[in-house]
Design a protein around this nucleic acid. Sequence first.
DNA 1: CCCTTTGCCGTACACTGTATTGGTGGATAC
DNA 2: GTATCCACCAATACAGTGTACGGCAAAGGG
Lengths: 214, 214
Amino acid sequence: MPLSREKIAAAAIRLADADGLDGLSIRKIAKELGVGPMRLYDYVLNKAELLDLMVDAVYARIAEVDKQPEWRATVLAIAHATRRAALDHEWFSDLLGARPHLGPHALAVGEATAAALSRSPAVRGIDDLQRALGALNGFLIGAVRREVTERRTARSTGTDEAAWQASLGPYLTRMLNTGRYPTIARLVIDGAHLDAEETFSHNLTTVLDGITGA
Amino acid sequence: MPLSREKIAAAAIRLADADGLDGLSIRKIAKELGVGPMRLYDYVLNKAELLDLMVDAVYARIAEVDKQPEWRATVLAIAHATRRAALDHEWFSDLLGARPHLGPHALAVGEATAAALSRSPAVRGIDDLQRALGALNGFLIGAVRREVTERRTARSTGTDEAAWQASLGPYLTRMLNTGRYPTIARLVIDGAHLDAEETFSHNLTTVLDGITGA
DNA sequence: CCCTTTGCCGTACACTGTATTGGTGGATAC
DNA sequence: GTATCCACCAATACAGTGTACGGCAAAGGG
């Protein structure tokens, strides 16, 4: 069975899911596919283009969300699907917003969000739409990125407990004990462990309220 | 004159400003400082820690903003300073949100924003504060990231005009001519070239309006 | 039968971060 | 004065990266 861009992207996604973007190399993908490393360059211009293919493959899954009748429900569905995809493929959050989303599926979800937003009564002209899209996408990119890094550090402080207790933990408590960061300290100490999905939902509606309310 | 973490970070920042993060290597930093590459490891654990140092050095500049009497003005000042810093050091946006901000100056900035937000009447308990901080930081990270990538692609389509006219341009017009992305097409064609700073300001107040519940 | 051309394949290059080894100067002990 | 040790620094070495490029075999044309 011959190679193809799709098959290469799929193999790359499998590896990136397992080892992260840093663990992803042309040679490993080729080995996974049982071919020589340079074969990949018959289908892909360079590694950057391969990353774009991976991103668009994920966007394809995001684009599968059902279209909702109400514009707000549509935006919520797309945003939640994007978050879900980023949690399933953490490397996705590293690439999200790092290059323009120009793949066909990325354009499709962009179209769906833009169309939904333009149905909001608060979005009047095309300038409003451009700004609203910027605000929403900005929040989406940043929020997802934050959540993924948080999850990563939580995992690594659990795994690499030695390093945490040896350096980072004491450093942090020392810092907070200086009294120079009282609010942060309060957040760390008293802050309940809020449910991540609930927080995301809450903040998303906050941003949407800002868009429609102003 | 002896080496120091600060001096190493400063040299690394100079190089990253010029060549981007991809062009940054231990060997180049060492050459810039006139020492052997392995000397740097007497001051820095590994490259990741060096990147953290660079990030915190930028946060030091951000933390210099004058404290405003009104909480909203404080948040605006910090956000604009962060954006300004990311435009001055584009690599900063690549690192922003990619790892927890735990350096002393990053903590200072976090403290200032958290303190300001907690003075908003709409932020009642510590849970509200945690969420508001998440919404604001999420937007900030994503918006800055978006703007920097936009600027980069604009620059590279200007520089590498051959590649644009050969592949990406035609690809995009072909895509938009399929009629599958009418809203996006309208945005690309009719969309005025909005001032980036104005857009950022507008969206920032939009998010803040959402937080305060206006 | 020979020549050309076309596609396939692996080698090779320049570069990365960093562990490790070897050497060298200066201070201290006898 | 000599020997020993130690701190410091330089260079080398290794395992890996993305990808340019040269060689080779098969196919087609005269």
